[in-house]
Design a protein around this nucleic acid. Structure first.
Lengths: 195, 195
DNA sequence: GTCTATACAAAGATAGAC
DNA sequence: GTCTATCTTTGTATAGAC
């Protein structure tokens, strides 16, 4: 049986991912978990603390998964890049889902300092990780980039996050698949840049 | 002297762009304009109506500017693309500014239906417009795209919106400039794709 | 660990004077 | 067109029983 604290975190994360942190209330979380409002306070002393715990867990899980794939000698650069697409493609199955940190970026100035820091670390980590993967793949001749690994990594992270948000707004799930496919064709070694 | 309704719209837009719609209140708007809460209601009967008016004005202004440049025979494809970067680069001057619709995309499911429709139309219009520009430029041999105009246009819009949000989160203004520069090098005719 | 009850502030909105 | 005053709901958070 699942721990109540975990259950609360799951409910809060889903609410933030869909409605945003400002629009989420203890009442919403309590209703989903099937408890009363004060029971949440027993596990998380304030709404800010709950929000920070949600983002920290999300960021740490993501970071651990990315580090594991990067350090797995079985995975080549292409497989590693494809692994990075996986969560985005899972978000694409539903019209409503976006990345937790992408959703929070829209209201970042209204968030408590602890949450802002977690979201910032999330993006910095993703950009550094992808830059490293692109550089490795480029060195091995697997990727052909039209610019340096750093700006290209930033372009890709921004495009994937932006595509999730636009997808949910327009309701066009194909949006995300198109962007992922375009990124693939963008780094494909067969598409050598000549200049 | 500026009309009060316009003043209210300006204040509300700035508040939504920074904190988000859910976190914005009549009190915040009233304080900025220098009036009391009920005076706002006289101009906009509800918070939802005010929010919808803000997004509609923003979308219509943007659409008019884009259409004007597209239909100006003086502007070639490159100048038109550069024109599209202008507002994004202006957002880049401040660490806090993002596109109104990019900010709203994060909390889209918490918005009233009228606002959701406006944000959707904003993105659909931008994607169609940019697709058309890319196609024209490609036909004239000015742009060299690594994929069809439609997916490339979607990638660019998503990347620009995502870059604004990431920029504000990390506080790194260079983020946006890098992405714009990467997009430029990405369509440059000198960088012909060979496959 | 969960509950009832409650405190306190802030929200959106309305009525009616000026 | 703007104000004061007020209504009603909802928010976060606390106190204390079980």
């Amino acid at each position: 049986m699942r721990d109540t604290a975990d259950h609360i975190l799951d409910a809060a994360q889903d609410l933030i991912q869909t409605r945003g942190f400002s629009a989420m209330s203890f009442q919403d979380v309590a209703d989903r978990v099937g408890i009363k409002k004060p029971s949440i306070v027993h596990h998380f002393p304030s709404k800010n603390a709950l929000g920070e715990a949600v983002v920290r867990r999300y960021r740490e899980r993501f970071a651990a998964a990315l580090a594991a794939v990067r350090d797995d000698p079985e995975q080549d650069a292409w497989a590693t890049l494809e692994f990075y697409f996986t969560p985005y493609l899972e978000f694409a199955h539903s019209a409503e889902k976006v990345c937790l940190c992408g959703a929070l970026a829209g209201e970042i100035l209204a968030l408590p300092a602890g949450m802002r820091g977690e979201v910032r670390r999330f993006f910095e980590n993703h950009q550094r990780w992808l830059e490293e993967i692109l550089e490795t793949g480029q060195g091995e001749g697997v990727f052909a980039l039209f610019d340096a690994p750093r700006p290209v990594a930033r372009l890709f992270v921004a495009a994937l996050q932006g595509a999730l948000l636009v997808k949910r707004t327009t309701g066009d799930i194909g949006q995300l698949l198109e962007v992922v496919e375009t990124i693939r064709s963008c780094v494909r070694a067969g598409a050598k840049v000549d200049r």
